[in-house]
């Protein structure tokens, strides 16, 4: 099939970018979206042009590196699917496709479709962990965890840190991302001990990194490739309220 593409090209962070038109010819429906872009890039290279820069690594939907907004939806039209797992059989011959980077204040564009998501790492650095030393821990079965709690923790920690939630959120909020980590750890007995401090410092970090506030639009969940649930945002809110009631208020 043949497609027309409009792709955001921006040479460097502080250079003005623009949408540029390309055509992708002879695309097979077995290709992944990124393989389609590979084909376009090979064409650009052979014309001596600079290929479209886009982030990707595992190409199997787990590393969270790939990040594009396709026709206005982060990760494109298919539910629960990363760009790298999106296949061209979901498009038709003659389609026009708009490809843009994830946009948010907290995600400066580095080049073309590549943005800097370091802010998400910095949120985790503010408490997205259990402060355990290496070694000197008890036997793994000495603390029992109900299957339900383990499953909740697992649901939450499926987040791949792709940032699509931020890009989809009308407020540029990282609430779903942050909530997934807070909920993962708060569901486990090992993580409960630091829960008060964690939820406060992580939400503070979210603000400091210039993410917006959550107004419960739920767009984030709609585009999340791992289907991280919005009930985790409610859980974060609960944890926050708990920390205000039980924790010391000096924060």
């Amino acid at each position: 099939m043949d497609l027309s593409l409009f792709v955001w090209r921006q040479q460097a962070p502080d250079v003005q970018g623009e949408m540029v038109a390309y055509s992708a010819k002879g695309i097979s429906e077995d290709m992944s979206f990124l393989e389609m872009l590979d084909v376009v890039n090979e064409g650009l290279i052979s014309n001596g042009e600079v290929p479209i820069a886009f982030d990707h690594d595992c190409r199997e939907g787990i590393c969270g590196t790939c990040s594009q907004v396709i026709n206005g939806v982060p990760h494109g039209p298919m539910e629960r699917t990363t760009v790298c797992q999106l296949h061209m059989r979901n498009f038709k011959d003659g389609d026009t496709i708009f490809i843009e980077p994830l946009r948010a204040k907290a995600f400066p564009i580095l080049k073309d479709l590549i943005v800097d998501r370091g802010a998400l790492d910095r949120i985790i650095q503010e408490g997205g962990y259990i402060s355990v030393h290496t070694g000197g821990v008890p036997d793994a079965n000495s603390v029992l965890i109900s299957r339900k709690d383990a499953e909740t923790a697992m649901d939450a920690s499926e987040c791949i840190g792709c940032g699509a939630c931020v890009a989809a959120c009308p407020n540029g909020s990282a609430m779903l991302f942050t909530a997934s980590k807070v909920s993962h750890l708060a569901a486990l007995p090992q993580g409960k001990i630091e829960a008060d401090q964690r939820v406060r410092s992580m939400t503070n970090a979210m603000k400091k990194e210039q993410f917006g506030n959550c107004s419960n639009h739920y767009e984030c969940n709609a585009v999340c490739p791992k289907g991280v649930k919005i009930s985790f945002i409610a859980k974060l809110n609960r944890e926050f309220i708990k920390s205000m009631i039980s924790g010391d208020s000096s924060d």
Binding site: N71, R103, P170, G212
Partner: peptide, 21 residues
């Protein structure tokens, strides 16, 4: 909140689709 939210997403998309909002 509204002002902060506007500041957090200053560059609009050329095309943006909403799904659940």
């Amino acid at each position: 909140l509204k002002i902060e939210n506007l500041l957090s997403n200053p560059h609009g998309y050329v095309i943006k689709q909403s799904i659940r909002k």
